[in-house]
Design a protein around this nucleic acid. Structure first.
Length: 230
DNA sequence: ACCCAGGGTCATA
DNA sequence: TATGACCATGGG
């Protein structure tokens, strides 16, 4: 502890989650998530995009549409072989065929999309996670983007991004982070919707936790750029 | 040729 | 609790 003066508070006050959000929004504009024409299509996309590039998911969904199989009933009815074939472009097609069928079977049992929409957020989330093949992130994608619930989605981009900003460690548990964000921002589905989409957009663009990150500097939120760039 | 993508499950230790 | 293997296609 030298006697040298230190800057008050911190040398650079950690940006608030709100401030980061505004930054991203100004930089990239509204993302209009989730791509999809119906609640069900969004649910299907959430399962198919697990560890998979979205462009591949679009092809699989197009296959389902052309086969007129984009309903829970049609998917439950479809021969497993055929379903896997439709899903082929999205990768992991054998696994995803089962997961998608599990979800659709569950939906039919629960009374369909309309019945799900009437459930409270907590129950809906728990029920989704209970489906084999739907983990916390996929469940939250569905809760937020298909059912407009104020649930903050935590994904790899979110961890990397905020860890880089020094706002989290990065290895916290899923629920820990989710509550952290939700408590800070307040339950606002519209903000959560846009925020997560912007984080993904920013991450997809350039930011991959490299020594240099042009996207972060462009957005003015890179820690390394805080002194030099605006 | 290599790396990775809008994860989740299962088997080990 | 915490790693590692596995799933599989398509784009950079």
């Amino acid at each position: 502890m030298t006697s040298s003066r230190r800057k008050k508070a911190s040398r650079r006050t950690s940006p608030s989650l709100r401030a980061v959000y505004q930054r991203l929004l100004r930089t990239y504009g509204a993302q209009h998530w989730w791509p999809g024409d119906s609640r069900f299509e969004i649910m299907v996309g959430a399962v198919l995009t697990q560890n998979t590039a979205w462009t591949n998911v679009e092809r699989a969904i197009a296959n389902l549409k052309h086969a007129r199989a984009l309903t829970p009933e049609a998917i439950v009815r479809a021969p497993p072989r055929r379903l896997a074939q439709w899903l082929k472009p999205s990768g992991y097609f054998n696994v995803k065929a089962k997961r998608l069928r599990n979800m659709c079977q569950w939906m039919v049992e629960q009374g369909g999309v309309g019945a799900l929409a009437r459930r409270n957020t907590h129950d809906l989330r728990a029920a989704l996670i209970a489906v084999h093949g739907i983990g916390p992130e996929t469940a939250d994608d569905i809760a937020l983007y298909a059912f407009d619930r104020p649930v903050f989605v935590i994904d790899a981009y979110t961890r990397r991004f905020f860890a880089r900003l020094g706002m989290i460690k990065g290895d916290e548990g899923y629920e820990t982070l989710r509550h952290m964000f939700e408590d800070d921002l307040g339950a606002d589905a519209q903000v959560f919707n846009e925020y997560h989409a912007l984080i993904v957009r920013h991450g997809k663009d350039v930011c991959r936790m490299r020594p240099r990150c042009d996207a972060c500097r462009f957005a003015g939120i890179c820690p390394a750029a805080s002194t030099s760039q605006r």
